[in-house]
Amino acid sequence: MIPRALIIAAITFLIDQFTKWYVVWHLDLINQRAIDVLPPVLNFRMGWNEGINFGLMSGLSARWFLIILAMGISIGILIWARQFTGWLAAALVGLIVGGAMGNALDRVLHGAVADFLNMSCCGFYNPYSFNVADIWVFAGAIGLIIFGERLPKRA
């Protein structure tokens, strides 16, 4: 299961890093600050998140702590996941690890995580931005919550 999870983690990591490069650097969001894609549902809004979700802990010089935390959680979840078999468990764990490593690399390279996706709808304005790695981590965690008890385990 672990080799499969690592393959999925590598793929999700590469997709995350490609989307960040494409939107932030290639489309020059870093200078434009905002690009309307399908307003108001999907917009690109540049944000550098120095903290955790929604900027919590920003300004506390937590950069290296958060990098080490992401690496520790990733190693921990890989060790924990050895009890499972099958592609679903590998996919869910791979999503979490790939997303965590994508955001950790941002912190190493830029001191903060590049966030650029902004979604609002139906009269609700969302002031926050996020990125593809955040989606991977969220999807993997929710999947483990929903399917965790039903995942096939090693004999």
Rank of each mutant, 00 (worst) to 15 (best):
F18H: 06
T19R: 06
K20I: 00
K20Y: 07
W21I: 04
V23S: 00
V24W: 15
H26I: 12
L27Y: 12
L27K: 15
Q32T: 13
I35F: 13
I35P: 02
V37Q: 00
V37R: 11
L38F: 15
L38H: 07
L38W: 15
P40Y: 09
P40N: 05
P40E: 03
V41S: 04
V41I: 14
L42E: 02
N43R: 14
N43V: 13
F44H: 05
M46I: 05
G47H: 07
G47V: 12
G47I: 08
N49Y: 07
E50K: 14
G51N: 03
N53L: 10
F54H: 11
F54D: 03
G55R: 11
M57R: 12
M57Q: 07
S58T: 14
G59H: 07
G59L: 01
L60S: 14
L60G: 12
S61G: 15
A62Y: 08
R63C: 02
W64F: 11
W64M: 00
W64S: 05
F65N: 13
F65R: 10
I67A: 06
L69M: 07
A70M: 03
A70P: 01
A70S: 13
M71Y: 12
I73G: 04
I73H: 01
S74G: 14
I75W: 13
I75R: 09
L78R: 09
I79T: 10
R82N: 03
Q83F: 10
F84E: 01
F84S: 03
T85I: 10
T85R: 15
T85M: 02
G86D: 01
G86S: 03
L88C: 02
L88P: 07
L88T: 08
A89E: 00
A90P: 02
A90Y: 10
L92W: 09
G94N: 06
G94D: 00
L95N: 00
V97A: 02
G98H: 08
G98P: 03
G98M: 01
G98T: 07
G99R: 04
A100W: 06
A100S: 07
A100G: 13
M101S: 06
N103M: 04
L105Q: 04
L105T: 15
V108P: 09
L109Q: 13
H110A: 11
G111Y: 12
G111C: 08
A112S: 08
A112N: 06
V113A: 00
D115A: 05
M119D: 06
S120L: 02
C122D: 03
C122M: 07
G123A: 05
G123P: 11
F124A: 11
Y125G: 11
Y125W: 14
F130C: 01
V132M: 05
V132Y: 08
V132G: 05
D134E: 03
I135Q: 05
V137L: 03
V137C: 04
F138Y: 12
F138T: 15
A139E: 00
G140L: 01
A141M: 14
I142G: 06
I142E: 02
G143F: 08
G143R: 10
G143W: 09
L144M: 07
I145G: 15
I145P: 10
I146V: 15
F147I: 04
G148I: 08
